[in-house]
Lab assay of single mutants.
Amino acid sequence: SRSVIRSIIKSSKLNIDHKDYLLDLLNDVKGSKDLKEFHKMLTAILA
């Protein structure tokens, strides 16, 4: 869910600018399909 993804971003080791950017992107995501794609992208970034 959106709140879980937000929590993953906030607890990541990324610097604050990257976190803010990803949180802004997350706010722009519409629909469950796009949310799944965003989660895939985030997982790849944090891997």
Rank of each mutant, 00 (worst) to 15 (best):
S1L: 15
S1T: 14
S1C: 08
R2V: 10
R2M: 11
S3V: 09
S3E: 15
S3A: 13
V4I: 10
V4C: 10
V4D: 09
V4N: 11
V4A: 13
V4W: 09
I5A: 04
I5Y: 07
R6A: 13
S7F: 09
I8C: 04
I8W: 05
I8K: 08
I8G: 02
I8M: 14
I8A: 07
I9Y: 00
K10L: 15
S12Y: 02
S12P: 01
S12A: 06
S12D: 02
K13Q: 11
K13R: 10
K13E: 05
L14I: 05
L14T: 02
L14S: 00
L14F: 03
L14M: 04
N15Q: 10
N15V: 05
D17R: 15
D17F: 07
D17N: 11
D17I: 08
H18D: 13
H18Y: 14
H18K: 12
K19A: 03
K19G: 01
K19S: 02
K19D: 00
K19N: 01
K19E: 02
D20W: 10
D20L: 09
Y21Q: 15
Y21L: 09
Y21D: 03
L22F: 05
L22I: 03
L23E: 04
L23P: 00
D24N: 15
D24F: 09
L25A: 08
L25M: 12
L25R: 08
L26M: 05
L26Q: 01
N27L: 07
N27T: 04
D28S: 13
D28G: 14
D28I: 07
D28V: 09
D28P: 04
V29G: 02
V29E: 02
K30Q: 07
K30A: 05
K30W: 07
K30C: 06
G31N: 11
G31L: 07
S32E: 14
S32A: 13
S32V: 09
S32K: 12
S32F: 07
K33M: 06
K33Y: 08
D34E: 15
D34R: 08
D34G: 15
L35I: 08
K36D: 09
K36V: 10
K36A: 14
E37Y: 08
E37W: 11
E37P: 03
F38I: 02
F38P: 00
F38T: 02
F38E: 01
F38Y: 03
F38G: 00
H39W: 15
H39T: 10
H39N: 08
K40R: 11
K40S: 11
M41T: 07
M41S: 05
L42Y: 02
T43R: 09
T43N: 12
T43Y: 10
I45N: 02
I45T: 06
L46K: 02
L46P: 01
L46T: 03
A47S: 09
A47Q: 12
A47V: 07
